[in-house]
Nucleic acid binder design. Sequence first.
DNA 1: AGGATAACGGACCGATCGGTCCGCCGACGA
DNA 2: TCGTCGGCGGACCGATCGGTCCGTTATCCT
Lengths: 190, 190
Amino acid sequence: MARTAAPGSRERILRSAGELFYRHGVRAVGMNQVIDAAGCGKNLLYTHFPSKDDLVTAYLRGCRRERERAGAAAAEGLPDDPATRLRALVAEIAATATAPDFRGCAFRLYLAEFPGDAGEPGRVARDYLRDTRAEIDALVARLGVTDPGRLADRIWLIVEGLYGSAGRPDAAAAAETATGLVDDLLAAER
Amino acid sequence: MARTAAPGSRERILRSAGELFYRHGVRAVGMNQVIDAAGCGKNLLYTHFPSKDDLVTAYLRGCRRERERAGAAAAEGLPDDPATRLRALVAEIAATATAPDFRGCAFRLYLAEFPGDAGEPGRVARDYLRDTRAEIDALVARLGVTDPGRLADRIWLIVEGLYGSAGRPDAAAAAETATGLVDDLLAAER
DNA sequence: AGGATAACGGACCGATCGGTCCGCCGACGA
DNA sequence: TCGTCGGCGGACCGATCGGTCCGTTATCCT
């Protein structure tokens, strides 16, 4: 044995690839571009990620982890009140969507690019959306309002709109609009 | 001269290409697939559309014409009342989004696939979104509410959400939710 | 110092991309 | 009936795709 493998290489490659995938779209980015951006050899890339699908799957899984981390951070220290948690959830998305290089929800963008994808990346993307929707449903259910289904549908619609407006000039306005509208909806139900 | 050119060929090709582009995404569809689907030769295709960009531009222009036609049909016979017109506008989008093979707004899907596209297709897509937004702004302005900007932002957000939910299981619920929410917003402003 | 090895980076593979060109067939007019 | 021309469809082009393989270099341990 002579050298020890660089431990951060996998994460470095994944970060470079993720930036490219997110900015330009998955299909638009070739493996050679990933290699150039990561500054690694083909060997190393294909050792860590045997195929592009594996790399894309890892990219989406990373996005999910990041989203969950951000969501947990936004909820931290808050009282376990469903209304407060819902407001924080939407506010966190709104804040994320206001970032200058925000181009939209990575999962929705992926599904827009690969509509019927039955592979692992598509599964990861759909799972995330399903689980996020379920999270909102659970919070709304705890509110004890008369029609939780309707309210959850409305909040979900607003979240979709928030993500949909991303990357266009309306993004900043959409963020304020979404938080304000959710606030109003919650206030009206109380 | 011996034969006269088949007059419907351009439209037939465009329709086949449009279905493929919409269903699978623009980048995922190759020119050979378009040729196979249209049942024509390469000659005819490239005579009508010298490049893929031209074909995509024509596809998006066709989508715009179709959207405008549907919007006009939905508004036809209605009183020229801004609230009624707004409700009809959202209801028309909701009805469109409920169609079984609806996958989302063609322009938003295109922009998701080609984020920074500076070419003609990107221009057509962005123009459509800008003009549709302006249409909502104009209608809301005519309502005479105290904060037209806020209401227009909210309605636009709902429209974005409606399009964003498309192609997923939530599409049908989103349609009802959007129309109901817009109704409530308009009723509250009155 | 010397040898083992991780990793860079390019040659290479078959497939497919958008796009060009042409041979052939079949329908129509003279 | 025969010549002409529109259009089908495939051969072909260079570029690029995802992916494999290997020669070289740089680095660390013995």
